[in-house]
Amino acid sequence: MLTIKDLHAQVDGKEILKGINLQVNAGEVHAIMGPNGSGKSSLASVLAGRENYEVTNGEVVFEGKDLLEMAPEIRAREGVFLAFQYPIEIPGVSNINFLRTALNEIRTYKNLPPLDARSFMKLSKERQDLVEFDAKLVNRSLNEGFSGGEKKRNEIFQLAMLEPKLSILDETDSGLDIDALRIVANGVNKLRSKDNAFVMITHYQRLLDYIVPDFVHVLYNGRIIKSGTKELALELEEKGYDWVKEAYYEETV
């Protein structure tokens, strides 16, 4: 589904991603871990097409197409979804109207007719239940005045509504209370299928107890310096990152 090859990217002339390689296939869940400032959100931003990141080298192929060529909204319509680490507030724009616009843009792109109001409401109700999203938040302004956790849950509600092929969750677990974490994880598990894939950026093993990853990667200083299976996350939780960094430097020196 997604193939990243030797991806380099910079922001304001500073190189942040220094050669990322990653293969994500349909049906897989990948976890990306790594110390603060290592480039995890940057990778997510580059994949989503944020303008201030300049790709200086490498390629990203998504479903057989060159992802880097596409405008951000086209990437979204092709099925790339980013659950933001810090979701933005947009005052006065109703959450549900925004979602309807988004969904219909995506449908139009796929040559599907727009959903009429009724079917849309039905879908919305169904997905609210799936991710146990508070109905009161549905009609409020987009993220305006939402608590940190509510914003994260709204990201997951949007994900459930838009049904992307590839979902990148940037620290969606941070800021969720214990119950919310379980609910969100359950939601994601229900949304998983053989046709979609998830990349979860996280600092905590806890999330991975609920959503069990097929692969775990360690991102450090703009590179993936170690990949493994779910046991790697446990090991990181226990021992921290130093041993991985050391092993990596020994190898490269």
């Binding site: 097409g49 947009i90 979602l99």
Partner: peptide, 9 residues
């Protein structure tokens, strides 16, 4: 950008 990321130009 947030809205772009949801498919809105």
């Amino acid at each position: 950008f947030y809205l772009n990321q949801r498919g809105i130009d």
